[in-house]
Design a protein around this nucleic acid. Structure first.
Lengths: 226, 226
DNA sequence: ATTAAAATATGATATTTGTCATACTTTGAA
DNA sequence: TTCAAAGTATGACAAATATCATATTTTAAT
């Protein structure tokens, strides 16, 4: 069982506030998992009973809408925590978490986390700030969905994907989503998403290399996203 | 200066965890305001430096989108707190708060609130749960915006308004929004909103009494909202 | 009471987006 | 290697929604 002291998650997340003792205690009760691309970490409605630390790999948080489509609410990357909201609210998960790449995660039981809250003020302040950040993002995201066109949202999302997950040597986005998933992020039909990608391709703002996408003209794309 | 002990806000909000001593201290440093319908409590981008307790009156939280329209992100009613997120994040407000009715609010300075966080664990846990609830709502709201049609969102919103703010003797919604504001809630053009209201009126699901709206057939409306 | 401004309503039309059909391409399993 | 399934692409069309114009009603200021 590896120690938590050197873990990437500790460096980037609220966990950086934990003391050595607390870290040892955590290392002691954590469970490590390997999750294959496409597998589910937890499902909307499920009781999670703890939080997951993302050591490696990206996952999508989705919600099934009434029309049967999966809306991708957010993407979570290494160094971040999963399931904080439902652990704190002591409620079932509101979103499903599905691996977009092979992942390594650690699970920390709820009781442990709740103890840290009462023991360590800085930790609970950090968690609170994280959730406040999530709330701000969610509000902004909502306004985007309500007020922007599909094309604007697509441009915005492509820039976000490059900024957040980087690009390969051939300039293609490192995080490769299917067209259906990309459509699920911007909240539109898969065909509409494909059509708009073609359009951006023809206009020279992006390049489609097989299923991969490369951004060619950031400025125009940014202006398009408004 | 009135005491905080009996205040409605204390009964319904995270503040219920505060001790008598803490309440006295709070009563001591709070400022009471009267805000007229249409006036702004704080503006997006402004530094708030504390939280507002809503004693009376409803306000809207809005965000100006790139196309110049005000999106109503949420409504806040008596007993709730305003500005928690920006106080905790120590960031400027992400949303503007504008009174929909004459309001009575109290302002509690940031320092005071942050002290309670470190002193009173139950209080910070309460705040955390509130914000987690807001996050869940925001995520759900976002999925609605992305996946539902304008008509579905209108039906959903009308039911929400009746459930949350109640109705008058003539069955009209107690909280009276202008058509423009209603459009701003569901994220559509004012004309589209008016048109759909007419349609629901003709179909007998609602009744338009001047500018007021009465729900006639909850079940059909609920089915329409999916 | 009068009147200008704002809010509500509705028609005509353009634009955006979704849906269905179909073809092509890639992927992965037998 | 081959083939079926999944993913990507595109056309045709329908439906939803926005925009602009204009009429009517309500509100509020003088």
């Amino acid at each position: 069982m590896s120690k938590c002291e050197q873990c990437i998650v500790r460096q980037f997340s609220s966990l950086k506030a934990l003391t050595k003792d607390e870290l040892l205690k955590m290392a002691d009760c954590k469970t490590s998992y390997t999750i294959k691309k496409g597998e589910t970490i937890f499902e909307e409605g499920e009781t999670t009973n703890g939080i997951y630390c993302i050591k490696d790999g990206v996952c999508k948080m989705t919600k099934l809408s009434a029309n049967g489509k999966d809306q991708i609410v957010k993407l979570v990357k290494p160094g971040e925590l999963l399931g904080q909201r439902s652990t704190i609210s002591e409620e079932p998960a509101n979103l499903s978490a599905v691996a977009l790449e092979d992942m390594e995660v650690c699970f920390i039981p709820k009781n442990e986390v709740l103890q840290f809250f009462t023991q360590n003020n800085q930790f609970s302040m950090n968690v609170m700030k994280t959730i406040c950040g999530d709330l701000k993002e969610a509000d902004d995201h909502m306004v985007s969905m309500a007020q922007k066109s599909v094309k604007e949202r697509l441009a915005e999302t492509l820039l976000y994907l490059e900024d957040t997950f980087g690009k390969n040597d051939d300039n293609t986005l490192k995080l490769q989503l299917s067209r259906e998933e990309l459509a699920g992020m911007i909240g539109t039909a898969t065909e509409s998403c494909i059509r708009l990608l073609s359009e951006l391709n023809k206009a020279g703002l992006i390049e489609l290399i097989g299923k991969k996408i490369a951004i060619k003209d950031r400025n125009k794309l940014r202006r398009m996203a408004e």
